[in-house]
């Protein structure tokens, strides 16, 4: 009665095996791919040069202290390096804040992929850790510096922007001056020519009245440009 029909069961069990096998392969492959993707996500920002410099300087210290005669990095340099690092952080915070609204609205509309959002969130989190780290380092170097380092860094960043802009504007002076000199020369020469033309027409008018027959061909020659003085001045412009 309980004789199992093994041959009859073979087909369903094979079906089950194939089904489960497919599911498992799919899920492992899918998961592995996803993990790989998130690990390979490009970082939002490039390498943090200022942070690298600061930490490099910090790590040079103990070694150099052990070696006799090797110069020790003074604290003031370390402090300056930390300040530079804070300034760079300010730039990055500004970028993140500017990108945040745009990024989230683009994501909602579906204009950008999920991975961009993931990269962004990772950058945000890293930034938070970075700020905390800088504050801790600052407090370790000088008690109480952590509260004000970012205020100072903010001003340094803003001042840098302002000064760059002013320098850009001032740098135009030479070029503009050159242009203006040329332009003024052109205007002056045009003005002089106009004066000349006027004089010529006057003298011609005088010569016409007292014209001898021998003067006539010359008169015709000079009369043509003076009669159409605007076209003449245009030609000169073209040459310049």
């Amino acid at each position: 009665m309980f004789g199992v029909n093994w041959v009859g069961l073979l087909l369903p069990s094979a079906y089950l095996v194939v089904l489960v096998g497919t599911f498992m392969t799919f899920s492992t492959v899918y998961r592995r791919r996803k993990a790989l993707q998130s690990a390979n996500l490009a970082p939002w920002f490039g390498p943090h040069l200022q942070r690298n410099i600061y930490l490099s300087l910090l790590h040079m210290q103990p070694e150099d202290g052990a070696e006799k005669g090797a110069p020790r990095i003074p604290d003031s340099v370390i402090r300056a390096a930390l300040m530079r690092r804070a300034v760079e952080d300010i730039h990055r915070i500004i970028q993140i804040r500017a990108a945040k609204a745009a990024c989230s609205s683009l994501l909602q509309r579906g204009s950008v992929g999920d991975d961009l959002w993931q990269r962004f969130q990772r950058a945000e989190k890293e930034m938070e850790d970075e700020l905390r780290d800088v504050v801790m380092e600052a407090n370790a170097l000088v008690p109480g510096w952590g509260q004000i380092i970012f205020q100072s860094a903010n001003e340094i960043a803003a001042n840098k922007v302002l000064r760059d802009k002013l320098e850009d504007i001032e740098a135009q002076t030479e070029k503009e001056k050159e242009w203006w000199e040329k332009r003024r020369a052109v205007i002056q020469s045009e003005f002089m020519k106009e004066l000349d033309n006027e004089e010529k027409t006057q003298t011609k008018a005088a010569s016409v009245t007292s014209a001898a027959s021998g003067d006539e061909p010359v008169l015709v020659d000079t009369n043509v440009p003076s009669a159409s003085s605007p076209t003449g001045s245009k030609k000169k412009k073209g040459k310049k």
Partner: peptide
């Protein structure tokens, strides 16, 4: 997070 614990060492010298 591994980013926060590592850094690229830049060989520097001081005058």
């Amino acid at each position: 997070m591994s980013d926060q614990d590592t850094f690229t060492f830049i060989p520097l010298v001081m005058d």
